[in-house]
């Protein structure tokens, strides 16, 4: 089912948490909310679930305004960051909870509940753990139980709050792939909150980048990578090198003889250039000097001293690394310029 937020604002006491958020996820879409901690992404997720109330704006699920609809009637599957499994219930009881608390008229029979639990347990690949208690499970297993529990109520949309936040990196990668496959199979509209860019860019169809309660940009992972709307987005979605410069007459100068001038479309004034390390070219001969070379790993990392700046560049695999101390020249042709504010 589709999801839409229209001009949603929220404050905690005197501190605003979300400003005027407009955001939509189409039927079956996987949307990630990516942002640093404190950017309001979890609050946004809780607003959708009905666990927080907005001061202004509308939340629409399947086109219906959710104003006045309590959390328990929204039909939203919510997976909490720390799973929030019921500690005194077994895995099977946890998963069955949402079915057992339905009003009698809509409550499935015992056998149906049992069948549904078994089905979900096999979906999350842990049928043998039905009788375990949450404290007898690993973090990854708890995560999957929480997901199965949320799916049991056949939610209209699925909300995931930092679903992999508490897991170690190895487990995270596996679960990430699994979650995407699960999404493709169920076709559920899914919103996931994360502060991990790799996670968001790898799993989601579209990513909304939040900062300090505002949406900075929404786009597909490829779109964001190709055309970041501002410096924050550029920095947040990948490693970057930052160089301050001055723009005059369409030319950016870096105030150092060892950095080449570059054309720049910004008006005259202070600015800075952002580059991905792998977009920086290094050629022999010039005013800059190679400070250090780390050749282990898939790419060669080269540290260049250019005037007062230390620039880190990544050379493509197979490139012959320059020798430490040799003179070199930097190619900044791929730089994007942003005005100083």
């Amino acid at each position: 089912m589709s999801l839409a937020l229209e001009a949603v604002s929220k404050r905690f006491g005197a501190t605003p948490a979300l400003y005027d958020i407009d955001l939509a996820a189409g039927e079956g879409e996987f949307l990630a909310l990516l942002g640093p901690s404190g950017s309001g992404k979890t609050t946004l997720l809780r607003l959708i679930a009905g666990l927080e109330s907005a001061e202004a704006g509308r939340v629409l699920i399947g086109g219906a305004d959710m104003a006045g609809v309590p959390a328990r009637a929204r039909g939203v599957g919510f997976v909490f960051q720390h799973y929030a499994l019921f500690r005194h219930m077994t895995v099977a009881e946890n998963i069955a909870f949402g079915l057992r608390v339905r009003p009698r008229a809509r409550r499935p029979g015992r056998a149906d509940i049992r069948a549904r639990v078994a089905e979900l347990l096999s979906l999350v690949q842990m049928p043998e753990l039905a009788g375990r208690y949450p404290d007898q499970l690993s973090g990854g297993q708890r995560q999957r139980v929480a997901l199965a529990r949320a799916l049991a109520i056949e939610p209209r949309i699925l909300l995931l709050d930092e679903p992999f936040g508490a897991l170690d990196p190895e487990v995270r990668r596996g679960l990430r792939r699994w979650l995407r496959e699960l999404h493709d199979r169920t076709g559920l509209t899914t919103v996931m909150v994360t502060h991990d860019r790799a996670e968001a860019l790898e799993v989601a169809d579209r990513v909304a980048i939040l900062r300090a309660g505002r949406v900075e940009q929404v786009g597909t992972p490829a779109g964001l990578w190709a055309a970041p709307a501002n410096a924050f987005v550029y920095r947040f979605i990948g490693d970057s090198v930052e160089l301050p410069c001055t723009v005059q007459g369409g030319i950016a100068r870096f105030g150092s003889a060892s950095l080449p001038e570059a054309p720049c479309a910004l008006p005259d004034g202070g600015a800075f250039a952002l580059l991905r390390p792998h977009e920086i070219g290094i050629a022999a001969g010039g005013e800059a000097r190679v400070r250090a070379v780390a050749a282990a790993g898939p790419a060669v990392r080269v540290e260049v001293q250019a005037g007062e700046f230390v620039v880190e560049a990544l050379l493509p695999p197979g490139a012959v690394p320059p020798s430490v101390g040799s003179a070199c020249r930097l190619d900044l042709g791929a730089a994007r310029f942003f005005p100083l504010r």
Partner: peptide, 24 residues
């Protein structure tokens, strides 16, 4: 969080209290 989870799963106030709060 557990009580909030119970709500998102469709439990009403009393059910949440009896099945989640009190056992905990």
């Amino acid at each position: 969080e557990e009580e909030e989870a119970a709500l998102t799963l469709g439990a009403g106030g009393w059910r949440m209290f009896w099945h989640v709060t009190l056992p905990n």
